[in-house]
């Protein structure tokens, strides 16, 4: 079971790299902002799988913190989007 979780974590890591490269190459500035989405979802997924696979329950706290920061960062990000109109 642990080796399955480790394999999935590695698969997600590969997935994250491909997605990051694709988003970073994206033609518009908005495409590059897609990278911000990837850390919140794929990053936390990798952390919780590693926590299980390596028997390190503390990593769940790290994942929770990452998700929390992603949520706060996301809302701050959106707040800027509500207000900032004229400039880039």
């Amino acid at each position: 079971m642990n080796s399955i979780d480790l394999a999935i974590a590695l698969f997600l890591l590969g997935n994250l790299v491909v997605a990051l490269v694709a988003a970073a190459r994206g033609p518009t500035a908005a495409d590059r902002m897609l990278m911000a989405l990837l850390f919140g979802s794929t990053g936390t997924g990798i952390l919780v799988l590693l926590a299980q696979a390596m028997g390190m329950p503390t990593l769940v706290d790290v994942a929770l913190l990452l998700a929390l920061l992603a949520a706060i960062g996301g809302v701050a990000f959106a707040k800027r989007a509500w207000q900032g109109d004229g400039h880039d």
Binding site: G40, V60, A67, A71, V75, A78, A81
Partner: peptide, 30 residues
């Protein structure tokens, strides 16, 4: 431990829905 794992989901959802709207709106303004 189970509940703590499940608590991560709403946080991640809040993050991506807020970021999604920010990106879509930014793209429209660009």
């Amino acid at each position: 431990v189970s509940l703590k794992l499940l608590l991560i989901w709403p946080l991640a959802l809040a993050a991506s829905s807020a970021v999604s709207y920010a990106i879509a709106r930014r793209a429209a303004h660009l």
